[in-house]
């Protein structure tokens, strides 16, 4: 057994024929594409109420002049950037949203001088205001620097939201977190794919709610 054999248990080591390998890879890729689609649908169902409530709370704060701050580590940092980027033509361009995971000068200064735990919490201290929203992306729900930033955010009066996997980890039922979106899967990759779709829905709902309020964004 090699160390990815658990991903593709039906593949045998040292297959002599690339065409057989290609067929096996395509078959397993199809299974994973289907799993991903299934998990996306399931995650939307399981999080419908939370998505709607979170979008309403965020939209209310936006209407009061608040901003959205997003963050995460590694691939989840990219998810945080994607949330801030939004998608063209949705009205998202008028929302004040940016990521705390994209400035290498700030991140390296904080990481080197204060440690990874404070990479985002110090930025929440610096940038976070009473009407703002903090959104953390984590596949595990366990990242210490995200938990710390959400706690600091809560102390400063921000609305706090977590997008998680693995059943939510330490972010589920956490008193520092107002809304926790949870993808119930044990696969980091499948979790991120479902999170990307939850993130799209949340943005869409925020735009809907914000336009319904008819107030300044």
């Amino acid at each position: 057994m090699n160390d990815t054999s658990f991903l593709y248990p039906f593949l045998e080591d040292h297959e002599p024929d690339p065409s057989q390998l290609l067929a096996d890879l395509a078959a397993s890729a199809k299974i994973k594409l289907d799993e991903s689609t299934q998990l996306i649908g399931q995650s939307l169902e399981e999080n419908t109420a939370t998505l709607t409530a979170a979008a309403g709370a965020i939209a209310r704060r936006l209407s009061l002049g608040g901003r959205i701050l997003t963050f995460g580590n590694g691939g989840s940092a990219c998810d945080a950037m994607a949330f801030a980027r939004g998608s063209v033509g949705t009205g998202w361009e008028q929302i004040s949203v940016r990521t705390l995971a994209a400035d290498p000068a700030i991140l390296s200064a904080l990481g080197n001088d204060l440690g990874a735990e404070q990479m985002f919490s110090r930025q929440v201290e610096a940038f976070g205001g009473r009407n703002d929203t903090a959104i953390a992306f984590s596949t595990s729900g366990q990242s210490l620097n995200l938990l710390t930033a959400l706690r600091v955010g809560r102390q400063r009066g921000l609305l706090t939201i977590a997008v998680t996997g693995y059943g939510g980890g330490a972010m589920a039922n956490n008193p520092d977190i107002d809304y926790c979106l949870i993808v119930n899967s044990q696969s980091v990759h499948r979790i991120q794919e479902a999170q990307a779709h939850l993130s799209l829905h949340l943005r869409t709902l925020i735009c809907d709610q914000a336009s319904n309020t008819g107030e300044r964004l």
Partner: peptide, 23 residues
């Protein structure tokens, strides 16, 4: 985004499988 992410996730997974299977 979810479709894009899973395309490169799978590309990554399959690439490692190919490297490890020493075809």
């Amino acid at each position: 985004d979810s479709e894009i992410v899973r395309a490169y996730h799978l590309l990554w997974e399959l690439t490692h499988i190919c490297l490890e299977h020493q075809v």
